[in-house]
Design a protein around this nucleic acid. Structure first.
Lengths: 110, 110
DNA sequence: TTCGTATATTCGAATATGCGAATATGTAAA
DNA sequence: TTTACATATTCGCATATTCGAATATACGAA
C-alpha cells in the first residue's frame, strides 16, 4: 500500500469512503456504484481512480464493465475500523440498503 | 468525537499525524512540538487548532504554556493503528528519537 | 461498419487548504 | 508599568481538490 498520508487523504472524502464501504460488501462495477450512491458517472470514475492510485482498490475488466474490489494489499484492520464507524450514520447506512435493493431488483448482472 | 470525514481530513496531513504520534507518547506543550518537529510556531499553532477542532486533542493552560494531549473521546483503536503504521518510516520514526533527546536535554520542564 | 452502452479523461471554474510574515494576546517576572 | 516569552490569529498568496459539462475511448451486438 501507498504512503499513509495519501491513503488517509483518499479515505477522507465522503464519496470515497462510501465507495469503500460498498466494496467491503462485495466486488461492484461502476454502474452499481453510481446507482447506489446516486452520483454522476464522471464523479464515480474520478473517485475510483483516486482509490486505485493509492492502492486501496483494484479493477478487473470484463467486456465493457469494469469491476472494482478492495485491493489485497489494503490494510483490512484500518478499513474495517473506519467502515464500522461510518456505517453507524448516514449516508453510509442507507447506502447498504440501497445496494441490496438494487441487487434484488437487477439480479446478479449489471 | 466529530464526524469521521473531518477526523480523517485532520489526520491526513503529515504535520498533524506527526503531532498525534508525539502526543501518544505524552502530553506536550507547543514548544516541545515545535522543537521536536522543527516547524515554525505559526505552523504548530495552526495545526494544533485543527486537531482540537475535530476533537482529537485537548489543551490545558498552565501559566504561559499550553499543554496538549490526546482527547479522551478520541478513537484509540484508530489512532494506535495509524501511529503504529506511521512510525515504521520517516519522519515519524526520527520524531520519537528527537523527542527523547529533547527530554533528556531539557529535563521535565519546558 | 454503425450503434449503443460502459467507462475514462479533459477543461475551466469554484472552493479548500497550506504556508510564512506580521501582528495580537496573554502571562509572569522585574 | 515595562519587558520578555509563549502562544494564537490575521493576511495575502500559492497550490490542491472537487465539480459538472463535454468529449473521448473501448467493447459487444447488429
Amino acid at each position: 500500500m501507498e504512503n499513509i498520508i495519501d491513503v488517509l487523504k483518499a479515505l477522507s472524502d465522503e464519496t470515497r469512503l462510501r465507495m469503500i464501504s460498498l466494496l467491503k460488501v462485495r466486488e461492484l462495477c461502476v454502474c452499481d456504484i453510481m446507482d447506489t450512491l446516486e452520483i454522476t458517472q464522471t464523479k464515480a470514475s474520478r473517485h475510483l481512480k483516486n482509490l486505485k492510485a493509492v492502492g486501496l482498490v483494484t479493477d478487473r475488466q470484463q467486456a465493457q464493465w469494469v469491476h472494482y474490489s478492495i485491493a489485497h494489499g489494503a490494510d483490512d484492520r484500518l478499513l474495517d475500523e473506519l467502515v464500522d464507524r461510518a456505517r453507524i450514520s448516514e449516508p453510509y447506512k442507507s447506502d447498504l440498503i440501497r445496494l441490496e435493493e438494487r441487487r434484488s431488483r437487477c439480479g446478479r448482472e449489471c
